[in-house]
C-alpha cells in the first residue's frame, strides 16, 4: 500500500502544475462586502474609494486574505481532474485515510487586487509525508502550493498542508464513565467511597499507610491489611491538564492531580470545578465524592473552600 502511495505521489509531483483554474467571478465589490460584513472588518480601504486612495491604492482593494475565496469551488464545485490536491485526497480516501483536517496555511501576497480583476489559480504538489501517528489517528501530511495569477502575473501564493487520516474505529461512548476494576485488594476502597469515606490501606503490623492498595506491605512485607479513614484533605503534589485523546464521560480539557493527603500517601484523581490555568503544585484540595450509580461512587477533588 505504502509503495502504491509513493508511486502515485511521484507521478503527481512529476506532472507539475495543474492547468490554471479561473475564479467563478472577477474580484468584485459584493463579495468583498459580504466578507467584511461577516468578519467584522472595518478597514475602509475595502469599501471606500477615497480611503483606499488616501492609503496609496489605486482605488478600492480586496482584502488580501480573500485571495482563496475568488477561486473556491462553490456549492457544487468539482475539482479539476489534474488538481494535485484532489488526486491526493482520492488516493488517500481509497487507502482508508478518509478524514481530513487542515493544519497549515501560509499565504504570500505580491500585490493588492482591485474589483474587476480576473484571478486564476494553479496548484502543484509540494510534499507528502507519512504515514505518521497523530493524535487523530494514522495519517499523511499533504502539502500543496497554489499560485494565483492575473494574466501571466503571479499575485499571490499559498502553501497549504492538510492531514489525511484514518479515524480511529468505533468512537467510544462519551456519556459513560470508566469503571474501576474491583478486586479482593481494593474492594474496601470502593465500599468506602460508596459509604462516604476515603479509606487508605494500613499495615496492622508496622503501621504504615499505603496507596494504591496491594496485598503486602512494601515496608515490612506483612500480608495482613486493614484501613483507616482519611480526612479528605490534601495538596496538589503534581498534575497534568489532559487535552487529548477523549476520555469516556469527560469534557476536555480536564485536570488529573496527584494529591498528597494530609495522612501522607498520594492518590491520583480528577480535579474538578477548577480553571486548569489556576492549578498549581501545593494547591489545597478537598475530597468531592460523586455518586455515579448505586454501585459506584467516584472520588474527585476540588479546590479547598
Amino acid at each position: 500500500m505504502t509503495e502504491r502511495i509513493h508511486d502515485e505521489v511521484e507521478r503527481v509531483k512529476a506532472a507539475g502544475a495543474s492547468a490554471p483554474k479561473p475564479g467563478r467571478d472577477p474580484v468584485n465589490q459584493p463579495m468583498i462586502n459580504n466578507w467584511v460584513e461577516a468578519l467584522g472588518d472595518t478597514n475602509p480601504i475595502y469599501v471606500d474609494d477615497a480611503a483606499a486612495r488616501a492609503a496609496g491604492h489605486d482605488g478600492i482593494v480586496a482584502p488580501p486574505a480573500m485571495i482563496q475565496v475568488w477561486t473556491m469551488g462553490g456549492l457544487h464545485g468539482q475539482r479539476n481532474t489534474d488538481d494535485p490536491l484532489g488526486l491526493m485526497l482520492r488516493l488517500f480516501d481509497d487507502a482508508g485515510y478518509t478524514s481530513i483536517v487542515a493544519t497549515n496555511c501560509e499565504q504570500t501576497y505580491h500585490r493588492y487586487l482591485h474589483p474587476g480583476e480576473q484571478v486564476s489559480m494553479h496548484t502543484t504538489l509540494e510534499d507528502v509525508v507519512g504515514p505518521k501517528q497523530t493524535g487523530l489517528g494514522e495519517g499523511w501530511f499533504v502539502t500543496t502550493r497554489n499560485v494565483w495569477t492575473v494574466g501571466d502575473e503571479p499575485v499571490a501564493e499559498m502553501l497549504f498542508r492538510v492531514l489525511k487520516f484514518a479515524p480511529r474505529p468505533a468512537s467510544p461512548d462519551r456519556s459513560a464513565v470508566l469503571r474501576p476494576i474491583v478486586g479482593h485488594d481494593n474492594a474496601f476502597f470502593w465500599e468506602g467511597t460508596a459509604a462516604g469515606e476515603l479509606r487508605v490501606q494500613h499495615c496492622p503490623t508496622c503501621g504504615r499507610l499505603r496507596h494504591p492498595p496491594g496485598p503486602m506491605c512494601p515496608s515490612c512485607g506483612a500480608d495482613k491489611q486493614d484501613w483507616v479513614v482519611a480526612a479528605g484533605r490534601g495538596t496538589v503534589f503534581s498534575y497534568v491538564v489532559h487535552h487529548h485523546p477523549p476520555v469516556p464521560g469527560k469534557q476536555l480539557p480536564f485536570v488529573v492531580a496527584l494529591v498528597e493527603l494530609e495522612e501522607g500517601v498520594r492518590m491520583l484523581g480528577e480535579l474538578i470545578d477548577v480553571d486548569p490555568a489556576t492549578v498549581h503544585v501545593g494547591m489545597s484540595v478537598q475530597l468531592a465524592l460523586t455518586k455515579i450509580d448505586d454501585e459506584l461512587t467516584l472520588p474527585f477533588w476540588r479546590p479547598a473552600s
Partner: peptide, 11 residues
C-alpha cells in the same frame, strides 16, 4: 489602513 499585508502564515 495604510498598512500593506504581505504574508499571513497560520497553524
Amino acid at each position: 489602513p495604510n498598512a500593506r499585508v504581505k504574508n499571513i502564515s497560520i497553524r
